[in-house]
Simulated scan of single mutants.
Amino acid sequence: MVVLVGVKMHNKEELWPIVAKLFGDNGYQGTAMRDIARALEMSEAHVTGLLGTRDEMLWHIVARVAGLFLTQARTVPRTISPAEQLHLLIYRHLEVVSQDREHVRVFLRDWIFLNEAHRQEIQAMRETYDAYFYRVIVAGIKEKAFRVPDSLLACLFVLSALQWTHQWFNASDVLTFTRLADQYSALVLNALGSDHIVPLDGAIDYLYQKEEQPD
């Protein structure tokens, strides 16, 4: 058995938030392997053996976040109205941001530094995710639930607004999160000309009662 002297043994899941914060604070390109090793109190060789190379670490973080966003979007049922679907899509997005802010920051900024194959894979996942919002907005326009002249521009507006939420969205507890998410959804829906009223307390409970299994 090989004993690593001076190296602290950790559960890998405890290490990823530290790596994500380093990438988030300094950027992927500004974070060297020695910086990661120092923060984790390990040798560079042990870090590589445990978490992989810097490229592999970036892929792990980015792919994890992309998967979380898609998983959340897939839970939104198509049996509720377009306005309710959009509200729930926004809520689900903010859940990921609230729970994994550092990871989301790396995902949004540093995914372009992935190798070509991984970059294409993430691009495809991003396009799939965007399509959930586009489909709902198009449906809302057809039903006259949203009053906007251009569905693509409306979709870009919503997604662009959501991309910046990791910079400021901070909820200390479930109640604060629900209120912030509901108010944010109400602002977006209002910007799209929707008459849908978002109850600012317990709105998600209301939607849960109407949910069925998504298609």
Rank of each mutant, 00 (worst) to 15 (best):
T71Q: 14
D150L: 11
P149T: 13
E102Q: 09
Y208M: 13
V97R: 03
F177N: 02
Q213S: 12
F157M: 10
R101G: 02
A124N: 08
L51K: 00
K21N: 08
G140F: 00
W16H: 05
L207F: 14
A131H: 11
A83F: 05
T48S: 14
L156G: 08
L4N: 06
Q72Y: 15
P77F: 04
D130G: 08
Y28C: 00
V19Y: 04
M33G: 00
I61V: 14
E41Y: 11
E127S: 14
V62C: 06
L200P: 00
V76P: 06
K210C: 05
A145Q: 13
I36T: 10
L192M: 03
F157K: 03
L86C: 02
I112C: 09
A124I: 09
L152F: 15
Y28T: 01
Y208T: 11
K142I: 07
L50M: 15
A63H: 14
Q29L: 12
N11C: 07
K142N: 13
T178A: 14
S160V: 01
I112G: 03
H196M: 03
L58W: 08
L180N: 01
D150C: 07
I18Q: 07
V76K: 00
L40F: 14
T48L: 07
H196R: 01
Q163V: 07
G67T: 05
F107I: 06
H103R: 13
L162H: 07
L153K: 12
I36W: 09
